[in-house]
Design a protein around this nucleic acid. Structure first.
Length: 732
RNA sequence: GGGUUCGUAGCUCAGUUGGUUAGAGCACAACAUUGACAUUGUUGAGGUCACUGGUUCGAAUCCUGUCGAACCCACCA
């Protein structure tokens, strides 16, 4: 690294930042072993970004916050590990990559599973490379020698081991018949997070059920009804609860029991609900509660299985059913209704709730001990108010469907002796039969035979794991699992910094899986950040065209400026607006840092020969000026450390800038200028300046590293450290 | 339906456990400058702290209610 050329009046960030970047890249400063003698560790497992696209600003903002915490702790004598990784993001990537293939004129169904997997793997590796460059480019001081990908062999092995232990030892995983969100187009089960709601105009049909009338938007599922339900508080129907009523229907005469359940909304429609456990989530729950049978009339292609409408698509069947009901005199009336329909987040197809055989984790039992810990404040969550949400989620947690009918991901290591057959019988009941000796077993390596009957005819489950099943094990799998060397040294981690939108899906379940596998909660502190919005408060996205290109901003304003813009005025869990003028403002601040350094270096150089005592007076506040810099510094340093303790990163950034610009430069430097030929004053300037540069370093490490290198080279500071990250942060 | 957050200058936001005259940046106006920095400095204008009622010696801050904005969870039969 060359000395800063102080002939330039403006800071040449691009050139100078690149020098720093190269310097860091060539050395191993960010590997914890660099200072192996340090005892106390500080670990952050960085949330692995999806390997299907370059990083967006939200991820970069998170990276910057984590880097600031990493550097701050490094400067506080800790052995710091920031562990980077990339996530395969199962279904999301699969859909993205399908579109990429489409552009190349290839259809997924024309490829073999393995071919698809390999092409997708290549695609992800390319994107991971871009993301890695971006991370380094904003100065993320992570240890890339330890970087992981969620589909790395050793990671998958740990995920498989967990699954085996859950299934075979503890019975916490089961294969069950439950209702799931089914995407007809993607042909897969989806978790709630993979779906969203869209408002749609539709019809509400009032249909006669014997003496009662039911209002429904889904008449085509009526052949799968197994009961009716009313609210016990509803005076109109209270007398019918517990009775069985006879009805006429398309499928003939039937008898349906009438249930009383408080979940029924008295004010919706007629206040009578038809219970269809095969095709509605709420009804499935009622079915479980009252032990009702399950009937299905729609298959995984979104087509009817009921004989009369066999093969028809749902919408088509709906019209036909309504027509038939009308003919039978069972249709009372039709009204318009706006309602939200659940659609696949990726392809926007309508979700068909249906019952199928899937793998589930019994999360309720596992959540119990995490709730106990949570009530004791473990982990500590910033902002604190999210603790309530976190606990409530855990208390209401449902069994977790972890199987997906996709190709991109970790294939479930479950095997069926002789294979299996799933079918829906005449009465619409779904059944599954395991062939061979009926054994289902889990094996981490590819098995040669059934361990029970020794049959060689064994078939692996076609499904893959939900991406969250692997990512919730990331805090320990990325450290090599419970027997890993890194695990022993760095687990549990100190901080989990992530978007507040995945508190439930990721953070809470990481707690569950971590506690189950390692008997420890994987992190001591959770820090949740908000979303990055544009100037008008809208979410930044490519499709809106309001997204800021990080590379563009780096070229225009530099890395340090971008970093500041990503963390300044950021409060935990609070969305913040980012726009170009803001970044420009931070560029001006960086320039201020540069020019004040230029002034100080000039003053020092000018008096170089008359400064034998500089190191003696170093650290002393000796000059009388209009400002009491000693007290100002004391207060400032106290404040900064206090804010750091409370993870008020945005406020720290703000205070640092404010102090440096308006106290240090505008007042102090101006006041001390007249004394600049006094060696004692110069010692003081140097000391105050360096303290400030140290304080700023975690936030704007490029320019401060450069200044540090120059101060060291010119002999103004006395240090053995090769990089500023190992200097000691000002404390009182 | 349940929950959370927010509403402070034209804009973006600070404002610690209640305490003088409510702050900063941007934008605006005037002035300065060849001595670190026009990517600068000084000064100025600009606020009924959404509204209402209350607690208090004292409220932007605490409490009640209203209005407005955003978000999360559940549900949408």
């Amino acid at each position: 690294m060359k000395l800063i050329d102080f002939n330039n009046k403006a800071y040449e960030y691009n050139k100078l930042e690149k020098e720093v970047l190269d310097f860091w890249d060539k050395n191993k400063f960010f590997e914890p072993e660099y200072k192996d003698e340090r005892d106390e560790t500080f670990t952050i497992i960085l949330p692995p970004p999806n390997a299907n696209s370059p990083l967006h600003l939200g991820t970069m903002s998170g990276n910057t916050i984590q880097d600031i915490l990493g550097r701050y702790n490094r400067m506080n004598g800790k052995k710091v590990l920031l562990l980077p990784g990339k996530d395969h993001a199962a279904i999301q990537t699969e859909v993205v990559f399908e579109k990429v293939l489409q552009k190349r004129g290839i259809r997924k169904r024309d490829l073999k599973r393995e071919e698809f997997y390999n092409l997708c793997y290549e695609f992800c590796m390319e994107n991971a490379k871009i993301a890695r460059e971006q991370e380094k480019n904003i100065g993320l001081s992570a240890d890339y020698s330890r970087e992981k990908f969620t589909l790395d062999e050793n990671i998958t092995k740990i995920v498989y081991e967990t699954f085996k232990k859950m299934f075979e030892e503890d019975g916490l995983v089961y294969r069950g018949k439950r209702i799931i969100n089914w995407c007809v187009r993607c042909q897969t089960a989806l978790s709630d997070i993979d779906t969203e709601y869209q408002e749609e105009d539709s019809k509400l049909y009032y249909i006669k059920y014997g003496e009662l009338t039911v209002a429904t938007t889904r008449p085509e599922t009526k052949m799968a009804d197994v009961a009716l339900a009313v609210n016990p508080k509803d005076k109109r129907y209270r007398h019918l609860i517990g009775k069985v009523i006879d009805i006429d229907s398309i499928e003939g005469k039937r008898s349906l029991p009438v249930l009383g359940d408080s979940s029924v909304d008295i004010n919706f429609g007629t206040g009578v609900l038809k219970v269809t456990p095969g095709h509605s989530k709420e009804d499935f729950r009622l079915g479980e509660k009252y032990n009702l049978p399950i009937i299905m009339v729609i298959d995984t292609n979104g087509k009817m299985t009921f004989e009369k409408y066999k093969g028809m698509k749902v919408k088509e069947a709906r019209e036909k059913v309504v027509e038939d009901l009308d003919k039978m005199g069972l249709l009372e009336k039709v009204s318009d209704i706006k309602h939200n329909i659940q659609v696949c987040e990726r392809c926007k197809s309508v979700i068909e709730p249906l019952v199928s055989y899937q793998w589930f984790v019994k999360t309720k039992e596992l959540a119990r001990s995490l709730i106990d810990e949570g009530e004791k404040g473990n982990p500590k969550i910033y902002p604190k108010r999210q603790e309530k949400n976190y606990l409530r989620f855990l208390e209401n947690i449902e069994d977790w469907c972890i199987s997906r009918q996709q190709w991109w991901g970790q294939r479930i290591p479950a095997y069926y002796c002789g294979g299996k057959i799933t079918k829906i019988n005449e009465s619409g009941d779904i059944t599954e039969e395991i062939l061979g000796c009926g054994n289902i077993f889990v094996s981490i390596d590819k098995p040669k035979e059934c361990p029970r009957c020794k049959s060689k005819k064994i078939v692996q489950d076609e499904d893959i794991f939900d991406t969250w099943f692997s990512s919730t094990q990331w805090p320990f799998s990325s450290l090599g699992g419970i027997n890993g060397k890194d695990f022993k040294e760095f687990y549990p981690t100190n901080v989990m910094e992530t978007g507040r939108d995945i508190l439930f899906f990721w953070v809470a379940r990481m707690g569950i899986m971590g506690l189950y596998v390692t008997e420890k909660i994987p992190f001591k502190t959770v820090y949740l950040h908000g979303l990055v919005l544009d100037k008008d408060g809208k979410k930044q996205s490519k499709s809106r065209g309001n997204g800021i290109d990080p590379k563009d901003m780096i070229d225009k304003y530099g890395r340090d400026a971008l970093r500041l813009s990503l963390v300044s005025s950021v409060a935990p869990d609070q969305d913040f607006r980012l726009f170009e003028e803001k970044i420009k403002g931070y560029r001006n601040f960086i320039n201020k840092v540069y020019n004040s350094s230029r002034l100080i270096f000039m003053m020092l150089e000018k008096n170089k020969n008359s400064l034998p005592s500089i190191k003696n007076s170093y650290g002393a506040y000796s000059t009388k000026t209009s400002i009491n810099i000693s007290r100002e510094m004391t207060d400032h340093v106290k404040k900064i450390n206090r804010l750091f303790k409370n993870y008020e990163i945005g406020l720290v950034a703000f205070e640092l800038q404010n102090f440096y610009h308006h106290i240090f430069c505008d007042i102090y430097l101006e006041a001390i200028k007249p004394h600049q030929d006094d060696p004692k004053a110069l010692g003081e300037i140097l000391y105050v300046f360096y303290q400030n540069i140290l304080l700023l370093h975690p936030f704007i490490p490029f320019i401060t590293e450069h200044i540090f290198q120059d101060l060291k080279r010119l002999g103004y500071i006395d240090t053995e450290n090769e990089t500023m990250d190992y200097e000691i942060y000002p404390k009182l």
